[in-house]
Design a protein around this nucleic acid. Structure first.
Length: 117
DNA sequence: CCAGTGACGGCTA
DNA sequence: TTAGCCGCCACTG
């Protein structure tokens, strides 16, 4: 289907949530990747900031979203700082020192994954 | 209406 | 190579 998520230009947040929700288990992505997918690659901050409101959207696996270096920068915003790491570990994503091990291996690119669909 | 904030990213020194 | 600074867009007060 050519109907892309971006086509439904609702709230910027909604777009971010939609992409994050598409992230498969055991995979992670960066704020920048999502920002680029939404068309605002220069505003990677907006993506992370949007996650700040993800607390209302429990369906949004924000724990699968980390910064470009795979650092769990947003763990502080979770229920517990360890919650994010536990969730990733539970999905098979190795996390050490608040950083995703082999981040590139687990990296999930919305462009590629969603485009191949 | 104006200014500050924010879970980042890229560039320059 | 590492560290620091600026820029960016969207939202709230």
């Amino acid at each position: 289907m050519t109907t892309s998520i971006s086509e439904n230009k609702k709230d910027f947040f909604q777009q971010v949530y939609q992409v994050v929700r598409l992230i498969p288990e055991g995979r992670v992505t960066s704020y920048g990747a999502i920002a680029i997918y939404l068309g605002t690659k220069k505003s990677s901050r907006m993506v992370g900031w949007a996650m700040n409101a993800c607390h209302s959207m429990k369906d949004v696996p924000a724990h699968r979203v980390v910064n470009r270096i795979g650092l769990l920068t947003g763990k502080q915003h979770f229920e517990t700082s360890e919650k994010m790491q536990e969730l990733l570990m539970s999905e098979g994503v190795a996390v050490e020192n608040n950083q995703v091990v082999h981040f590139i291996k687990h990296f999930w690119d919305p462009f590629i994954e969603l485009n191949l669909e």
